[in-house]
Structures are given as structure tokens and as C-alpha cells.
């Protein structure tokens, strides 16, 4: 597993990002720089454009206008191999738990002889060692999401995008996922995570981006955002008064 200082983590700059569908603007971000240390949490109510922004940053959605710069250069396909993404509903391959990890390691060119040890280490890290041979799709929601994160980690990413990974989980499963995320962050992996859970953003975030109506309303260090939000929308959101 790579070990590097947080200030060496991949940086992102979104410039003039526009995404629309059927004449409706869904994303309209003039400027956003994700370059600070610690996890970046993208907050906002439903329909704010959080997931769409995440997909644009990861390169899964091509914007109608604007661009995403990764480490100051346009995002190329090759750069995505240094990133990983975990989706709201974990998409697990129809094979065993260890088969899901083996798939990624094989694609990354890890020699066959080295894979079992890597898989065992990952499963131990995620508390899934006992379920290695079990069909992945028979896991509970929390276990499935943990496996999705472990599979993302198996790619040895520099950036981990997470799209509301705990939205359908109970508190204990959420806690296990958050532990994995914090551990990844401590190893120097840049975390960019979407959530609408303010409590989770307080627990995990060092950098907060608040979105509303497809726009970035506020972008600030977490402590400042939660203690002294600058915009009325942020204040309403933190007060639970901003529903949509």
C-alpha cells in the first residue's frame, strides 16, 4: 500500500462546469478547487447536484461546458486509474467476496501469486475475512458497502470518491464505513465524499462544499463552515430548514 504525505495527494479544479438535461441546468460550477488536506465533504439537499459533481470530477460524466483539471492538467482517461469511486448502492460483481477483489487486482496486473495475500489483508482490514468465499451479493448492506470500499482500495488509489456510501445503512454499519474512510484518509488518500448527513460531515470533514440548485454555495474549512457559515443558504441548511 502506498504511503504519501497528504500534500502530495491529487488535486482537482473545476472551471466553468455546466451540465444540463432537456434544457434544465443541473450543474453550474464556476470555480471549485479541491486541494486541501483531509476529507472533502460535499453537502447539500436532494437534487443539489452533489452526485453529478462527483461524477464530473471522476470523469464519468462529460460536462457540456467547462473542464476539470487534475493536478493542473485536463483529466485524461489514464488519470482515472489513479482514482476509485464507491457508489451509493454498491455494485458488486456476481462472484464471491474474494472474487470481487481478485477481479480488480488482476486488472491492475498484480501477479497471481501475490493476490491471495493482498486479498487476505484487505478482507482482514474490512472485517470480512470470514466471508471470503461467500457470494458477494449475499452480503448485508453494510458488508456490501465495506466490500465496495475494499475493492476500491485494492486499486491503490490516490483519490477515493464516495457517493453517499452510508445513506441506507444503520448506525453500526455507518460507523464501520466511516472507520475505513478515515483510515484511508490517514494513509494520504484524498477523500471526496458526498453526503446529506450533517453529522457525518462534522465527523469526517475537514473541508466542506455546500451545494444548492447545482451551484457551489459555500466552500470552507469544516470548522469555519459549521461554526460560522457565511451564506444564508448554509445557515438554513445547517438549521435543517433547507429541504430542497
Amino acid at each position: 500500500m502506498r504511503d504519501f504525505a497528504p500534500d502530495m495527494a491529487m488535486t482537482f479544479q473545476a472551471e466553468g462546469l455546466r451540465v444540463g438535461r432537456n434544457g434544465v441546468t443541473l450543474l453550474n460550477v464556476d470555480h471549485l478547487a479541491i486541494d486541501g488536506p483531509g476529507p472533502t465533504l460535499i453537502l447539500g439537499p436532494n437534487g443539489a447536484g452533489k452526485s453529478l459533481l462527483l461524477r464530473c470530477l471522476h470523469g464519468l460524466v462529460a460536462p457540456d461546458a467547462g473542464r476539470v483539471l487534475v493536478d493542473g492538467a485536463p483529466c485524461a482517461e489514464a488519470l482515472r486509474t489513479r482514482q476509485a469511486m464507491v457508489f451509493q448502492r454498491p455494485v458488486l460483481l456476481r462472484r464471491s467476496v474474494q472474487g470481487n477483489l481478485d477481479f480488480v487486482l488482476r486488472r491492475r496486473g498484480v501477479p497471481r501469486a501475490d493476490r491471495p495475500a493482498r486479498i487476505a489483508a484487505l478482507l482482514a482490514e474490512g472485517g470480512l475475512a470470514q466471508k471470503a468465499r461467500q457470494p458477494a451479493r449475499s452480503l448485508s448492506g453494510g458488508e456490501a458497502q465495506r466490500l465496495a470500499i475494499l475493492r476500491a482500495m485494492a486499486t491503490d488509489p490516490e483519490v477515493l470518491f464516495l457517493d453517499e456510501p452510508t445513506s441506507a445503512l444503520d448506525p453500526s454499519a455507518t460507523q464501520a464505513i466511516e472507520a475505513l474512510i478515515l483510515d484511508a484518509s490517514r494513509r494520504g488518500i484524498r477523500i471526496v465524499m458526498v453526503t446529506h448527513d450533517i453529522g457525518q460531515a462534522r465527523r469526517l470533514g475537514q473541508d466542506v462544499v455546500l451545494m444548492h440548485g447545482g451551484r457551489v454555495v459555500e466552500h470552507a474549512p469544516a470548522a469555519r463552515f459549521f461554526e460560522a457559515p457565511e451564506t444564508p443558504i448554509a445557515r438554513r441548511f445547517l438549521a435543517g430548514a433547507l429541504v430542497i
Partner: peptide, 26 residues
């Protein structure tokens, strides 16, 4: 179901064919 996840894992559209065939085997 798989397209975004496979793309995120760096699997191209054509390269995803064997994976989809294997996972759809039943």
C-alpha cells in the same frame, strides 16, 4: 447496473464484454 462501476475501475466498454458474459452466466 455495471457500466459506471466498470468504467470507474478502468474497464473499457469492449473489455467489459467478458466480465458481463461471465457475470450473466446463469
Amino acid at each position: 447496473e455495471y457500466a459506471e462501476q466498470l468504467r470507474s475501475l478502468g474497464v473499457s466498454r469492449l473489455a467489459s464484454v467478458p466480465t458481463l458474459l461471465w457475470d450473466g452466466r446463469l
